[in-house]
């Protein structure tokens, strides 16, 4: 599987994260999104006339929507990430994948505006993103009341992976996450998953490692 990738794109990161969690190695093809605008060049437009990345190719298959790519990776290599096949859960996962698009269009657009000065009505984008984040906070608080932390069912699914990047990077667009305790704990649960990889702007959970080496007084005694 080849991923046309940009290191700073949260949509591309969705795919990289899913592949890492599923233990799949992707053939990464770096796209000069900024400053080169290569995604709007002839080679990539031939693959994806919409001029967006990520693009995943696997043999003859070309996929250009990150949430569809998550579905494909999970279905072909890690079906446990799709949730179970009960009607309710299938529909809930699908609903969260659509919700993830609302995050892209609000928090994601605010981030592009603030970081790369892309055009946009920043006040309206942030207002829309705040509504979306509040919905997510309420949903995760409901899950927590039932003893869970992931969006659907009792284990992480592509629903979590689809929503995570634009939420975690919301502060880049001037949307602090201080007001969302359940979102914070949900992000922490995702960051703690075996195989988790970060992207720039999302820090690793350093708490998962022990404090290295002996403490100062021990070191000094040893060297004396």
């Amino acid at each position: 599987m080849r991923l046309y990738d940009y290191i700073l794109s949260p949509s591309c990161y969705r795919v990289r994260l899913m592949a890492a969690l599923a233990g799949i190695k992707l053939d990464l093809r770096a796209v000069d999104f900024h400053p080169g605008a290569e995604h709007r060049g002839p080679e990539l437009l031939a693959l994806n006339p919409a001029g967006t990345i990520p693009i995943l190719t696997d043999g003859d298959l070309v996929l250009t929507q990150s949430t569809a790519i998550l579905t494909y990776i999970a279905a072909s290599h890690a079906p446990e990430w799709l949730g179970d096949d009960s009607p309710a859960m299938r529909a809930q996962v699908g609903q969260w994948l659509a919700f993830a698009q609302r995050l892209t269009d609000s928090a994601g657009a605010a981030r592009l505006h603030d970081m790369l000065q892309m055009p946009g009505d920043i006040v309206a984008l942030r207002r829309s993103a705040t509504r979306t984040l509040r919905e997510l906070e309420a949903a995760i608080s409901a899950v927590r009341r039932r003893g869970g932390i992931f969006l659907v069912g009792d284990r992480p699914t592509i629903a979590d992976i689809a929503c995570f990047p634009y939420v975690a990077l919301a502060p880049d667009g001037g949307l602090p996450l201080d007001a969302y305790p359940s979102i914070r704990l949900w992000m922490r649960a995702i960051r703690g998953l075996p195989g988790f990889v970060e992207m720039p702007g999302i820090h690793r959970l350093h708490e998962l490692l022990p404090e290295p080496g002996p403490q100062p007084d021990v070191i000094r005694k040893e060297r004396a």
Binding site: D178, H203, L205, H206, E207, L209, P210, E211
Partner: peptide
């Protein structure tokens, strides 16, 4: 420091790891 990390009984700063 709220961006930092907790190891055992200590809180460390994410920037330079001061504990």
């Amino acid at each position: 420091l709220s961006h930092g990390f907790v190891r055992g009984e200590f809180l460390s700063c994410i920037y330079h790891g001061w504990r």
